[in-house]
Amino acid sequence: MDPLLWLLEPLRHDFMVRALLVSALVAGVCGLLSCFMTLKGWALMGDAVSHAVMPGVVIAYALNLPFALGAFVFGVGSVAAIGYIKQMTRIKEDTVIGLVFTGFFALGLTLVSKVRSTFDLTHILFGNVLGISGEDIRQTVLISLLVLLVLLLFRRDLILFCFDPTHARSIGVNTGFLHYLLLSALSLAAVAGLQTVGIILVVAMLVTPGATAYLLTDRFDRMTWIAIGSAILSSVLGIYWSYWMDASTAGCIVLVQTGLFLLSFLFAPRHGLLAQQRR
């Protein structure tokens, strides 16, 4: 097929243009956040939070509130629950995380089945970026810009917080605030991300670009640019691919992301598999 046609034909549809723009924005923001997630070792936390926001989204829809609000409450709430149970019992953290997020997710699932008439379960589980409504676009864009602003403003503090929280605290940086700031950003990014790829796969948006970039560079600045770039590229290519193959959009986006990670895993100049074997 003519590559120009491949590129331009989908753009005749308004829904494709909207989908491309929204997911590029969301992917970029999630890509930036994924750098912090990777370095802080919060991948599992990202998985937990992204599942735990579900009941919040459902309740918000049912009550006609902004879904970001519900997601935020349940996202931060799940982390608080994880922290509390861990502190009060002798159960190990990964067990507590597994326990809490499935509980929240199950609550969401049950709620959805009761309010199904206004709500499509598959959209929240697997994303629905091609059919995203005007109101959802507005909220998603707002959330993304808010997260972006927070990450940019507190960039240096967050790097310090990821790298050496003890030092941060000892020089008077409020690490408790940063902890919750990053968690809030995570909850909000998760709810933005689930618009494009759904709850099940949103953790890929929050982890994979950061991991890909981490293998390619030893500089934080470059890492963020690579992560953002690879995330945006993945979402755009993924949407095109899903259009022409008539396949799941979420699946395609995440597959491209995973593909980029594999390339980086194999061919990264210093930390890739081949480079390591040559050494």
């Binding site: 370095l39 790097i159 310090l160 990821c162 790298f163 030092h167 941060a168 020089i171 030893d218 890492m223």
Partner: peptide, 18 residues
């Protein structure tokens, strides 16, 4: 975390953040 993507001058600069 010695794999952290940060260079020496930036680590030292963190001493100034407070």
């Amino acid at each position: 975390d010695w794999n952290f993507p940060i260079h020496v001058a930036n680590v030292v600069m963190m001493g100034r953040y407070g």
